[in-house]
């Protein structure tokens, strides 16, 4: 279950509100700011989900960067990180790629619990056990600033 964002969780006075249609056919009210949390050097953000995209494992870097508690993340859809600046086409491409059993990679602007954001270079692979896909592993690493700048220009054109 994914709840609407709450104003009391938001850091900063300058914020915007929007309602997003998310994977799985539900909507979520998003409150977001222009406050960026820089990606820390040398760390990886790691998570796994089941086949429906429900989070089953997170590491400490995920907890730290997302601003959520681990208990809030486990059992939530991965789209809890979905930022309104990310074009839906990027996620459609992600799901099409991993559902076909392939590795997906891209640059993603993720939403924090406090309304801020952080950029990552994300890689998602299907977890195959005994020949069957049982879920997905996503690993995020520090992105190239040049690539992020390219995405900042490109992504608004994809809506």
């Amino acid at each position: 279950m994914l709840h609407d964002m709450k104003l009391e969780d938001i850091v900063g006075d300058q914020y915007k509100e929007v309602t997003l249609d998310l994977y799985g056919g539900f909507t979520r009210k998003i409150i977001y700011t222009e406050i960026e949390t820089p990606y820390p050097d040398g760390k990886l953000i790691v998570s796994t989900t089941d086949k429906q995209g429900i989070i089953t494992h997170v590491n400490q870097s995920f907890v730290y960067m997302s601003g959520f508690e681990e208990e809030e993340l486990l059992g939530a859809p991965h789209s809890i990180l979905r930022h309104p600046d990310m074009p839906p086409a990027a996620f459609a491409d992600l799901w099409n790629t991993v559902n076909a059993g392939n590795k997906w990679q891209g640059f993603v602007k993720n939403l924090r619990k406090d309304g801020g954001y952080y950029w990552v270079k994300a890689t998602v692979i299907p977890n195959v056990r005994d020949g069957e896909v049982v879920g997905y592993t996503s690993v995020r690493r520090k992105p190239s600033l040049t690539k992020v700048d390219e995405c900042i220009k490109l992504y608004p054109t994809l809506f």
């Binding site: 990886l44 790691v46 796994t48 890689t123 692979i125 592993t137």
Partner: peptide, 13 residues
């Protein structure tokens, strides 16, 4: 072991 192997796979690109 599978988890670590999956993780290494994600890093190989």
């Amino acid at each position: 072991m599978y988890f670590m192997n999956d993780l290494v796979d994600t890093l190989l690109v």
